[in-house]
């Protein structure tokens, strides 16, 4: 079965196979330097711009703001979960995440 991935309700959701799976307004922890200088950076996701799949990992393009230093920026490739056997397993926003480099390598 192919995976239907899209942003929904003007950036409020990542929909995976017509089910709203990842929501804006959660706070994600990102490793140092990935978003701003805070360590870790606690970033509130304000809107999803796009969604893509990288192997089995669902990565999103989002806009967010750091809760400590206030930096507001776009996040190009934030991994939000994995697809295993057509099912989506979301990552925990509070677990520290790294950003996937455009070429798929991890820093």
């Amino acid at each position: 079965m192919s995976i239907a991935l899209r942003t929904l309700d003007d950036g409020a959701w990542i929909s995976i196979n017509d089910s709203r799976q990842v929501s804006v307004s959660d706070v994600w922890s990102l490793t140092t330097g990935a978003f701003c200088d805070c360590s870790p950076a606690y970033v509130l996701l304000e809107a999803f711009v796009d969604v893509d799949i990288d192997g089995s990992i669902v990565v999103v393009h989002a806009v967010g703001q750091c809760l400590e230093c206030g930096t507001r920026d776009s996040i190009e490739r934030l991994p939000v979960g994995r697809i295993v056997n057509d099912d989506f397993y979301p990552y925990d926003p509070e677990g520290v995440q790294w950003l996937v480099e455009p070429d798929g390598e991890r820093p």
Partner: peptide
């Protein structure tokens, strides 16, 4: 707000 709305924080 969060009572019903998807976007709310």
């Amino acid at each position: 707000g969060t009572e019903f709305c998807s976007l709310s924080i």
